[in-house]
Simulated assay, not measured.
Amino acid sequence: MAIPELSPAQACTRLTHGAVLIDVRQSHERAGGMAEGARGVALDELLADPAAHLPSQRQELLLICQSGKRSADAAQALLAAGYCNVASVSGGTVAWREQLLPLVQPLTDAAEQDFFDRYSRHLLLPQVGEAGQRRLQRARVLVLGAGGLGAPAAFYLAAAGVGQLRLVDHDRVERSNLQRQIVHTEASIGQAKVDSARERLLALNPTIKVEAVPMRVSAENIDGLLEGVDVVLDGSDNFPLRYLLNDACIQHGVPLVYAAIERFSGQVTVFDAGRQRGVAPCYRCLFPEPPDPAFAPSCAEAGVLGVLPGLAGVLQATEVLKLLLGIGEPLIGRLMRFDALSMQFRSSRFGPDPHCPVCAPGAPFPGYIDYAAFCRGS
């Protein structure tokens, strides 16, 4: 049976004659404005128990959504359920707004309105939605390093609404950083990187918390830094720190999102051996021994294309959000390599080392070692 459709102007007229208008959009969509006189009842709630919201099957019912499709589907379902006087508003709230018909803002406090406005594009994604965004709001992420990788990654995590970011870095901003560490500005030179980053992140999203920790990470303080953290993002640039961070994340059962860059190339992966022993590999499984320093120069020694850490950092931020939301396929057991000059991405799989001294099933935690000596080969 064809669903009757009314224009927004016709629906507005019918309201004055006693029709009931139901907005079937989700609450975050209605936060942007509803047709005046409409009641908000999300589509799934309405169809789950129509009688709870629409006791009379003879009442004239008008349904409206964003563009008209969901309301037409809902009207069809209500007709099948015995409601005999149902119509859909053609063009939905978009057309209602375009025709300058009256809109109202649902009653909500300022913080909730900010939430719905700020994350409106996330809220439209079925994989995120309001529940997922609330999960991000409660999440805590440790970003180790406020430099080339940490700068873009932290920017996007802050924008995405990750509720608490713990930034750890002992360095101060130098002019040479500004070519790639986009969280800092000329005015930040000489300032602690974590303080500079905190200012910029809160300017972008004042609803989150940013904890600035101007500290050199060591075996003595790593456990405290990992306390209460859901995911760790590794923006470090030296091998002793990477091995320390790997071991600590296994000990605490926290996933670790890793990246490294050099000149025009980079690599990204996710280590989650602490929660998935024998299934997910760790950093030591991929790199049992540190490379010869001659073959792994730092950016200060070899140089780096300014945009390259941005590319790697954004990939890291993407993996962090996937882990927090429990969506997609994280890069666990997959190493993503990319070459900016040829703009090619290659993914290769690697598995856990059954003899790994840190993450092998049943292996007791060996404790933290002298990582600098380990990386020197002494």
Rank of each mutant, 00 (worst) to 15 (best):
E29R: 06
A81V: 08
A75S: 14
N177W: 02
D247T: 07
G32L: 09
E301D: 14
L286Q: 05
L107G: 08
R180W: 06
A48R: 14
P152L: 12
A312L: 07
I332S: 09
G82C: 11
S67E: 10
F264I: 08
G92V: 05
P293V: 09
L123F: 03
P290Y: 08
S298Q: 07
L136R: 00
P361K: 13
K209T: 15
D272W: 01
S218Q: 11
G163A: 10
S176M: 00
C359Q: 05
P255L: 08
R277I: 07
P290L: 07
L142E: 05
P206C: 09
G147M: 04
V104S: 10
E289M: 11
A219Y: 10
S347G: 12
L167Y: 04
Q105V: 14
Q191L: 13
L124W: 02
G147V: 06
I250L: 12
P55A: 13
G306C: 04
C65P: 04
A42R: 05
E36A: 15
A111M: 12
A203E: 11
Q179H: 15
A51N: 10
K322R: 14
S67Q: 12
T16P: 07
A11R: 03
C356W: 00
Q133G: 06
G333F: 01
N246S: 12
E130W: 04
Q105T: 15
